[in-house]
Design a protein around this nucleic acid. Structure first.
Lengths: 191, 191
DNA sequence: GTCTATATGCCGATAGAC
DNA sequence: GTCTATCGGCATATAGAC
């Protein structure tokens, strides 16, 4: 049979897709390879035909999860969404509660600290892309101060809202973060 | 001998102090009970004479780490430090790099998600105290919007600066977060 | 209360059959 | 490439001596 040539890439994609969701939702340590492979419809032993290690998968999953989250944010928005459109969707209770399409920048922020360089590089690359998207939506230069400030408020606000759970202060965090972004980008301040 | 009456509280305090540092630095999963007990000058078996479980210790360690971090921030400041004094110390590269006296709000933010209620409550309590301190330094009402916005920028900015490591964008994150706090609290905006 | 020793389970990675 | 089986290590929690 010749189907093995196309079978491998399909399996690999299924593994990364499953890993993107599971890792983003629960972090690196609390997800096992068994679980990822089961979610991908395979068994543990097949894993090492596709990846060298768990952390190599982690690095790739962070990048894929970021793309999924971005696509989900941009669904059903104007072709050129405003920054207010994006923050309204990003800093929402549904997004803080998780599910698929969660943002790895917010949910894995403190999980990156002691991981290897490959993982840290993947996270930094995703973050820079995130800032670039914000700057684009805000019609500014990509190095803009306001775009970086908005990124901190979005990632920090969402991470905190998740950590604070059902406490009412979590919703306040989401609300005031949106207001701060609006206020900081209104002023045509140049650094 | 009668020293056993004072010995137990001393051991307990040593355990919590060691745990506060280790957990804040590396999160819940990557710290073992062995390691905590060794740092406290004891061995593994003695742990359960003081705590019911690892997560019970975690909840207590978060509260203690917050006090340590607060004391460290307020050392060598004016008796009534301004919000600018606090943010300057909090959003610094040394603080992002860790060490003892690290802030558990920033370093454990995404680690709280699936922990039990006791831990989540401890984190929420610490966060509310943090916001209250900021509001006090800003001479405003404790429910103030600006204080909450500053808290998001401080926690989010420090967590991101740590995750981004030695990449230059980490230092930019610290700088623009400080500027955002100054700008948001300058305006005498009332929500 | 503190120690050593151990029960019990999980996980990452490997070996070998098909 | 994928499977089953297993190695080796580490973690939480417990048992029992002192």
């Amino acid at each position: 049979m010749a189907w093995s040539k196309t079978h491998k890439p399909q399996s690999r994609e299924a593994i990364v897709t499953a890993a993107a969701m599971l890792f983003t939702e629960r972090g690196y340590e609390r997800v096992g390879i068994d679980e990822v492979m089961a979610a991908a419809g395979l068994t543990r032993g097949a894993f090492y035909a596709h990846f060298d290690s768990k952390s190599a998968l982690y690095a790739e999953a962070i990048a894929v999860a970021a793309i999924r989250a971005r696509d989900h944010i941009l669904e059903r928005t104007p072709v050129t969404p405003s920054l207010a459109d994006i923050t309204e969707r990003y800093l929402s209770r549904e997004r803080a509660d998780g599910g698929s399409n969660s943002c790895p920048l917010a949910f894995l922020a403190t999980d990156i600290q002691l991981r290897n360089q490959q993982v840290r590089d993947a996270y930094a690359r995703v973050f820079k892309g995130f800032v670039g998207n914000i700057a684009g939506a805000d019609q500014r230069d990509k190095q803009d101060t306001a775009a970086l400030q908005a990124a901190v408020l979005m990632v920090g606000g969402l991470a905190l809202a998740r950590a604070l759970g059902d406490d009412p202060i979590g919703d306040q965090v989401l609300a005031v973060s949106k207001k701060a972004i609006a206020q900081l980008t209104d002023n045509t301040q140049r650094s």
